[in-house]
Amino acid sequence: MGRKKGKPRVVVIGGGTGLSVLLRGLKEYPVDITAIVTVADDGGSSGRLRCELKMPPPGDIRNVLIALADTEPLLEGLLQHRFVGGNGLSGHSIGNLLLAALMELSGDFVTAIEQLSQVLAVRGQVLPAARHAIVLSAEMEDGTIVTGESIIPKSGKRIKRVFIDEKNVRALDDAVTALIKADAIIIGPGSLYTSILPNLLVPGIVEAIRESKAVKAYICNVMTQPGETDGYTAGDHLKAIHSHVGNSLFEYIIVNNGTVEEEVRAMYAAQGQEPVDYSEEYLTRQGYKIVADQLLIYDKFLRHNAAKLSQIIMGLIEKKA
């Protein structure tokens, strides 16, 4: 049975800059986008607002709203602007403060997101994975427990698993509905332990993904992340997801098969990062269909080619239809 007529419904799950990069490309296509964003951040401006105003962290939500917005460059620059001075204002971005203000006015974080989405003419729907902030903890390989999304990668230890306190935490109803009705569910790219898994650990998210008849794909990171995925291959990323939420969550894995220029590679190696390699034999043996392409762009820093990723996603949707 093919997909119903109309715009394909694409749900993207993640957080951080990786999700924003993908959405900037995907919004140029005739698709109905829903972005489900992590609410585990506890560092910087987001962490301060989370603590002082008892609100979910707005930073990743802000970045996603801006990525999907139909705004002038000046407005985008204004929303991303961080104060460098001022008693209490230093470090805060205007976009974060706008979300905080709208939440105070409406009394609800989800409503605040909807209102700012209207102001910015956002092309799609942006939803937090849960209505309230979650606390992310990690058990390290030496048995110690580290609590705090921003602290975990700085511990200097290898991560065994991450977990959340599930008490009073459940997936947003709209997020569950979007996943079940989706034509495509895309997980990633983003920090494995602090952006991807915090979403999947929210009760109700994985169950909705499994129930959905959508085409499902995981976009593997192109570079390892210090303190999180040092030395990881694409297979290691999958092993971590399997150990947390089980396997067979998605059908496709999208990986980069392009090379990184030696000069750029050396620059990243100095920061403890290296390209994520993959074994076609291992991934196939695990039951995944591999989509490999040159997915890298370098412009001051390495990132995914949003246009090419979007083309791949649209191709998977057409194949499923």
Rank of each mutant, 00 (worst) to 15 (best):
K5I: 06
R9W: 11
G16T: 00
S45D: 10
D60W: 08
T71P: 06
G77W: 04
L79P: 03
H81S: 08
G86H: 06
G88L: 05
I94N: 01
N96E: 03
L97Q: 02
L99H: 00
A100Q: 01
S106D: 05
G107I: 08
E114H: 05
Q115M: 09
Q115N: 03
L120F: 00
A130I: 07
R131V: 13
M140P: 06
G143H: 03
I151E: 10
I151S: 09
G156R: 12
D173M: 09
D173L: 11
A175T: 14
K181E: 13
A182R: 12
D183E: 13
I185N: 02
I187A: 09
G188M: 13
P189N: 11
L192G: 06
I196V: 08
P198R: 01
P203S: 09
I205R: 12
E207A: 13
I209K: 08
Y218I: 04
D230T: 01
G231F: 01
E251G: 03
Y252V: 06
T259V: 13
V260N: 01
V264I: 15
G272Q: 13
Q273A: 15
P275N: 10
E280Y: 14
Y282R: 15
R285S: 15
Q286F: 12
G287D: 07
A292C: 09
D293C: 09
I297P: 10
F301I: 12
L302D: 11
H304G: 12
A306D: 15
K308S: 13
K319W: 11
